[in-house]
Amino acid sequence: MTPLTHRVLLFASWSDALGPQVDVELPAGARVADLLTALTARTGGKLLPRPVVAVNQRYARPDTVLSPADEIAIIPPVAGG
Protein backbone atom coordinates (compact mmCIF):
# COMPACT_ATOMS: atom_id res chain seq x y z
CA MET A 1 0.00 0.00 0.00
CA THR A 2 1.26 3.49 -0.81
CA PRO A 3 2.20 5.44 2.30
CA LEU A 4 0.27 8.64 2.94
CA THR A 5 2.01 11.91 3.81
CA HIS A 6 0.91 13.59 7.01
CA ARG A 7 2.02 17.14 7.78
CA VAL A 8 2.80 17.54 11.48
CA LEU A 9 3.25 20.77 13.47
CA LEU A 10 5.83 20.78 16.27
CA PHE A 11 6.32 23.07 19.24
CA ALA A 12 8.80 23.93 21.99
CA SER A 13 11.49 21.26 22.49
CA TRP A 14 10.15 19.13 19.63
CA SER A 15 10.33 22.10 17.27
CA ASP A 16 13.90 22.77 18.38
CA ALA A 17 14.83 19.17 17.59
CA LEU A 18 12.94 18.53 14.31
CA GLY A 19 11.79 21.94 13.06
CA PRO A 20 8.40 23.63 13.24
CA GLN A 21 6.82 21.20 10.79
CA VAL A 22 7.66 17.84 9.26
CA ASP A 23 6.07 15.49 6.77
CA VAL A 24 5.69 11.92 7.97
CA GLU A 25 4.75 9.02 5.72
CA LEU A 26 2.46 6.49 7.34
CA PRO A 27 0.36 3.64 5.98
CA ALA A 28 -3.36 4.24 5.56
CA GLY A 29 -5.15 3.66 8.84
CA ALA A 30 -2.16 4.68 10.94
CA ARG A 31 -2.88 5.88 14.47
CA VAL A 32 -1.49 8.54 16.78
CA ALA A 33 0.74 5.97 18.48
CA ASP A 34 2.26 5.03 15.09
CA LEU A 35 3.02 8.67 14.40
CA LEU A 36 4.82 9.06 17.74
CA THR A 37 6.89 5.95 17.04
CA ALA A 38 7.88 7.33 13.62
CA LEU A 39 8.76 10.76 15.01
CA THR A 40 10.75 9.38 17.93
CA ALA A 41 12.85 7.44 15.43
CA ARG A 42 13.88 10.78 13.89
CA THR A 43 15.24 12.31 17.08
CA GLY A 44 18.55 10.48 16.90
CA GLY A 45 18.41 9.34 20.50
CA LYS A 46 17.92 12.87 21.80
CA LEU A 47 15.73 12.86 24.88
CA LEU A 48 12.51 14.81 24.41
CA PRO A 49 9.61 15.13 26.81
CA ARG A 50 6.73 12.81 26.07
CA PRO A 51 4.10 14.70 24.07
CA VAL A 52 0.42 14.30 23.49
CA VAL A 53 -1.01 14.75 20.01
CA ALA A 54 -3.72 17.14 18.87
CA VAL A 55 -5.78 16.32 15.81
CA ASN A 56 -7.73 19.22 14.33
CA GLN A 57 -6.93 21.27 17.45
CA ARG A 58 -8.35 18.72 19.88
CA TYR A 59 -6.42 16.35 22.13
CA ALA A 60 -6.39 12.88 20.60
CA ARG A 61 -5.96 9.40 22.02
CA PRO A 62 -3.14 7.03 21.04
CA ASP A 63 -5.62 4.94 19.04
CA THR A 64 -7.06 7.86 17.05
CA VAL A 65 -6.78 7.11 13.31
CA LEU A 66 -5.02 9.80 11.28
CA SER A 67 -5.92 11.18 7.87
CA PRO A 68 -3.62 13.26 5.63
CA ALA A 69 -6.32 15.96 5.72
CA ASP A 70 -6.02 16.32 9.51
CA GLU A 71 -4.21 19.19 11.19
CA ILE A 72 -1.82 17.22 13.40
CA ALA A 73 0.25 18.79 16.18
CA ILE A 74 2.78 17.47 18.67
CA ILE A 75 2.06 18.98 22.08
CA PRO A 76 4.95 18.71 24.57
CA PRO A 77 4.13 19.21 28.27
CA VAL A 78 2.35 22.55 28.41
CA ALA A 79 3.42 25.46 30.60
CA GLY A 80 0.84 28.20 30.27
CA GLY A 81 -0.41 30.49 32.99
Binding site: F11, A12, A54, Y59, A73, I75, P76, V78, A79, G80, G81
Partner: peptide
Protein backbone atom coordinates in the same frame (compact mmCIF):
# COMPACT_ATOMS: atom_id res chain seq x y z
CA UNK B 1 -5.42 26.55 31.78
CA UNK B 2 -2.19 25.23 33.27
CA UNK B 3 -2.90 21.65 32.23
CA UNK B 4 -4.75 22.08 28.93
CA UNK B 5 -3.83 25.21 26.99
CA UNK B 6 -0.97 24.59 24.51
CA UNK B 7 1.37 27.35 25.67
CA UNK B 8 5.05 26.77 26.44
Amino acid sequence: IKTRVPVW
